[in-house]
Design a protein around this nucleic acid. Structure first.
Lengths: 198, 198
DNA sequence: CCATCAGGTTAACGACCGCTAACCTCGCTG
DNA sequence: CAGCGAGGTTAGCGGTCGTTAACCTGATGG
């Protein structure tokens, strides 16, 4: 397995640039020649690394969903005996880290899902569903007044809030990363609290 | 002007179906033949009503942005002497109505902006910016502790929260419209309050 | 030192798509 | 009732795009 300090493999370069381009112009709006050019090779050269353009999107989306779910499960596993409110904070923190560090992926994640082949789409949806259910359980523990459908709606809405990072100033116009993360965290907590209030 | 009870014009039919299809499969993922078929005519027939596919998207996006801005301005004009917190409630209510009634448009609104011609994109962005600034002013009146950049971030994030409606259950699976609207409203208020807390 | 193979290249094919051209057919209206 | 414009139709053009084919090259290891 490649350690973090290794030079990125060609495959990784391609995935990163493809993610950026797909997020900027949409899956159908980017040609394979452009993706190739972004990593310094020509269009058809990509086919030495991926069986097709679809496969790049599929690997990106499965990767995102899997990472989110794995991270959340890890945080939950470390949460034995810790109050639900704290566990929820940990989930929020993890999601914010992801949303701030991988903005193109966050964008793709809820935008290009329908461009996948049936089997891939089902897999991604399954991972997403498990991620949501995991949040719903923690939220209902922290705010027992919430019905299950209300908790699910609240979770989706908070995802919308946290995933707004791509809209927060294109580049250095937003305040420091820590400031933004804190603000998002407070707002997410405030939204859940308001949802849980009878 | 067509009253609300008139049969929809062909133009209106086309725009509505185009919005739905663009939201479902993306601007580049929908062909003119499909849009035509959705209203019972064939692809090139559309060109009797619009100069091109781009023009449909442009009209949709300009319409959305304009409607949101106009509605917000109207609510603000009626708000003389009313406390800022109440005005903010009114803005939230208006945005929620829109997000719940025109889900495809909400989806397009932050997804396909980059597919527009330069001039149209500039217009839409200008309308969006004015809408955001209007919210920012009201939010800062209601929560004077917020700096201007923090208020702007908070507004964008709440838009993310409110615009999450397309993710809340595809059809009748979500609770009643009123219940959902109330929940979203409470969460938006909670998020702003948490952002404004020192 | 030669064989192999990973990882490129360019050329080109076939499908698709936006759009135009040319034509048709009603329902008005002078 | 002639004519004309609104609103359709089908055929087809030109460009783009994903993909494949055929070929090249330099590193590597027996």
């Amino acid at each position: 397995m490649a350690s973090r300090t290794d030079a990125p493999t060609r495959r990784e370069q391609i995935l990163k640039e493809a993610a950026r381009l797909f997020a900027e112009r949409g899956f159908h709006g980017v040609g394979v020649d452009e993706i190739g050019a972004a990593v310094g090779i020509s269009g058809p050269g990509l086919y030495r690394h991926f069986p097709g353009k679809d496969a790049m999107l599929a690997e990106l989306l499965v990767g995102i969903s899997g990472q989110l779910l794995t991270g959340a499960r890890r945080r939950l596993a470390e949460a034995d005996g810790i109050p639900a409110a704290r566990v929820l904070d940990s989930l929020i923190e993890g999601h914010i880290d992801f949303a701030l560090d991988d903005r193109p992926l966050i964008t793709l994640h809820d935008r290009e899902l329908d461009r996948l082949r049936d089997s891939d789409r089902k897999l991604v949806r399954q991972l997403q569903r498990q991620y949501v259910e995991l949040w719903v359980q923690v939220v209902r523990e922290a705010y027992p007044g919430l019905t299950e459908p209300a908790a699910r709606s609240a979770v989706h809405s908070v995802f919308g809030l946290l995933n707004s990072t791509p809209h927060l100033g294109r580049a250095g116009t937003l305040p420091g990363r820590g400031t933004t993360a804190t603000l998002l965290h407070r707002m997410a907590r405030g939204a859940f609290e308001a949802a849980g209030a009878e």
